[in-house]
């Protein structure tokens, strides 16, 4: 078992292997425990399987037609491959590389899009409450509170990405998965999102894919290093960056990587 410390876990990944086509494994026999109320970074060179591993955590990888998955992931004690994807994705939310608010919906409706799309009826006061808290959680409330019912296309990339995080938070999930959420953003917008993630871990467990090592070093508590589909090393971030056990990790950290 790949357990890095005695902190409580939220997700347990066991012998997870994923192949897009029959023989080609994108994720190879990965085992790890994701810690509660922590930011876990997944690092590694492009194509090493970060996105695939992340998407497996709320079964978004199943959208690809010929994918095959072995092993398991447990949310607390429940195997996510036995849960309905609908229930699972409400507990494990996701934020994508490029901000993707719904262009046909207002800012307000974007925040509660999860409820709207699923036809979950809420009282007016509940809706208002969810929208306000979610937007405050992503520090977007003050910027948009006077244009809640406008469409969000005038927002900057960073604001749109925070809106997408708010949309994921609106379901009050246990875990939030983020796939290189700042790669399309400028440094100021990036810094805002990084600060935000640090605040959010009080209440949520966060898994963050990043190919930006300094970002992992700045904000993550624990970090995984992947290479060619394998989880090479997983430890507390400070240990990974100061004292990696594997030479492969060390090469990557010090930039001596091909």
């Amino acid at each position: 078992m790949n357990d890095i410390n005695t902190q409580p876990s939220i997700l347990t990944i066991e012998n997870l292997s994923i192949a897009y086509d029959k023989d080609k494994l994108a994720v190879k026999n990965v085992s790890a425990t994701i810690k509660k109320n922590a930011i876990t970074a997944i690092m590694g060179p492009s194509g090493c399987g970060k996105t695939t591993l992340l998407r497996a955590m709320n079964r978004m990888h199943e959208l690809y037609p010929n994918i095959s998955t072995t092993g398991q992931i447990r949310l607390y004690d429940e195997n996510i491959y036995d849960m309905s994807t609908i229930k699972l994705r409400r507990k494990i939310g996701m934020v994508f590389q490029r901000p993707n608010p719904f262009p046909t919906l207002s800012i307000y409706d974007n925040v509660i899009a999860g409820y709207k799309l699923n036809g979950i009826k809420l009282k007016r006061s509940e809706r208002d409450e969810i929208v306000e808290t979610s937007l405050k959680n992503v520090t977007l409330w003050d910027e948009v509170k006077n244009s809640l019912h406008k469409k969000g296309n005038f927002l900057s990339g960073g604001q749109q990405q925070r809106l997408c995080i708010a949309r994921a938070l609106a379901f009050k999930p246990d875990v939030i998965l983020l796939d290189e959420p700042t790669s399309a953003l400028d440094p100021i917008a990036t810094a805002k999102i990084e600060d935000l993630l640090i605040d959010l871990k009080e209440n949520y467990s966060i898994v963050l894919v990043t190919h930006n090592m300094s970002q992992a070093a700045r904000i993550s508590d624990n970090a995984m290093y992947m290479y060619m589909g394998e989880l090479i090393e997983y430890d507390e971030t400070t240990k990974i960056f100061t004292n990696p056990k594997e030479t492969s990790t060390q090469n990557y950290i010090t930039g001596r990587f091909g």
Partner: peptide, 24 residues
């Protein structure tokens, strides 16, 4: 990405079609 956004919110497939793809 728009379709993925809807699916990641736990939206059943036919609702993704009716409420995201067709309006968009």
């Amino acid at each position: 990405t728009l379709k993925e956004a809807a699916i990641a919110l736990g939206t059943p497939y036919y609702k993704v079609v009716m409420r995201v793809l067709i309006p968009s």
